[in-house]
Design a protein around this nucleic acid. Structure first.
Lengths: 256, 256
DNA sequence: CGCGTAGTTGAACATTATCAACGTTCGTGG
DNA sequence: CCACGAACGTTGATAATGTTCAACTACGCG
């Protein structure tokens, strides 16, 4: 993994927070000063296990991190995909007993930030509690959409929706209607995220390709017609809360 | 609706918070002193609409409140069911623009608590921010299980799981293996919560009845064999985080 | 007693799963 | 740099699960 300068990893997290919250200079500095221990995590290995009590949260530095649950037959369901800049289990600060496992979708790097440091930061800067809380709620809004995706959309729509969501979150779509972006997941992982089987995902991807919407292969998504893909995926990016204007960004505790 | 003494509504919310957090006397008092405006909400009418910016959160006093999303065909998906004592949209304190609609499942009463009051309380008692944040994360853990339910379980298991979850959250299961509890939802709402059709829910409920597991009729669930229902629903109550021992309850900001 | 909502049932159909085989790509060590 | 094995992707045939449509029944409320 290309090692970014240490502070740059935290900068991405700060950027994410700043999308929805206003931070003072001191609060920004507190985020950027968080300590952390970089760790490489292998694909298909839990680095946080179900039921485990953790003492740090994992900032995604590179790669993708999935949140995994399963039914009693061991059939898996991915309930969240975290991208660089996300803290995959920020919720563990207030709820350290894991209710899902965490796994890299392909080899990834995370920065383990001790809860103690996050707690200290929120104690010194009370507004940070609300800012981190808000960050968790963005993930909850995404999760809510996943319920709809898996519960009330057909296979093709589900996959198109997931592709749209990931493209948007990764900041891939530009003015152009066609573009491509790396997406390091297998078809089976795509199936686990959409509640389908690997075989069926394969067939759906084929039709997306044949319809000229998008080509998903070799861990890369090539969108040929973004508008059409958005329509096929019934995608309305509003729930991502990613385009909140600066004057709409929230601040509950007023700066001193 | 039988009008509880006003403070008793907030007491149930405080009870819920106290299940997972330790509150000081002052913090308890701050919760109990929250102002609110009681409001009766009709079934099948959004009292919070998608995209609306709200200025208060709704504590459920009586009845059940559903969080509704839908696909572009208008087919609905219920992503959460809130019971008395829950604040259905506590997240709106930090994210006031609604990403789902709220509706009563049958006529219900809510207490609208102004965000301003909640903000003031958290400003005066910083630990409340973490306590409310934690409360939201309990709902997120439930939401995560709903993704699994809808994505990776068969119809009968889904419905059994939902019944188990609601029974547990309502505090219905006792030492006895058979009991009953009111559950004011229609079969179609059950379908919207599980990602099925009303017709299929009807058939599944019939088999649950024939198998001697549970009888769901006339807005009342009669569990005949709790253990068997738990097995049929692949239900592991751990994710509810409802049985955290007092010494495991969290407190980040230490009392002064 | 009549009307609207909710629940029930059957038959035909659609979507997705399952099973099984085969093809392709990628990474590793010789 | 090539060969090999393992993981990943592709395809067809068949089966299971749940949907749709349509009709009919039961219940609650005025």
């Amino acid at each position: 993994m290309h090692a970014l300068p240490y502070s740059q990893n935290l900068q991405r997290f700060l950027d994410r927070l700043s999308l929805r919250s206003i931070l003072t200079k001191e609060e920004r500095q507190a985020i950027l000063s968080l300590p952390g221990h970089a760790k490489q995590v292998e694909a298909n290995v839990d680095f946080v296990a179900l039921g485990e009590t953790v003492a740090h949260s994992c900032l995604v530095v590179a790669g993708l991190i999935g949140r995994f649950d399963q039914n009693t037959n061991g059939i898996r369901q991915i309930t969240a995909i975290h991208i660089p800049g996300d803290v995959a289990d920020l919720h563990s600060v207030v709820q350290p007993q894991a209710t899902s496992a965490l796994q890299a979708l392909s080899v990834a790097t995370v920065l383990q930030i001790p809860h103690a440091a996050l707690r200290l930061a929120t104690a010194q800067h009370p507004a940070l509690a609300e800012i981190l809380w808000r960050d968790c709620m963005v993930d909850a809004a995404i999760l809510s959409q996943w319920v709809v995706n898996v519960g009330r959309r057909e296979a093709k729509v589900r996959i198109a929706h997931l592709l749209c969501e990931m493209a948007s979150r990764l900041g891939a779509p530009t003015a152009a209607n066609a573009f491509s972006f790396p997406f390091m997941v297998t078809q089976v992982q795509l199936a686990d995220a959409t509640g389908l089987t690997g075989v069926h995902v394969n067939r759906v991807l084929k039709t997306l390709r044949e319809d000229g919407l998008a080509d998903v292969r070799r861990r890369e998504v090539t969108v040929h017609d973004w508008e059409a893909l958005v329509a096929a995926g019934e995608f309305d990016p509003n729930y991502l809360q990613a385009d909140i204007r600066p004057d709409e960004r929230l601040r509950i505790v007023q700066p001193a």
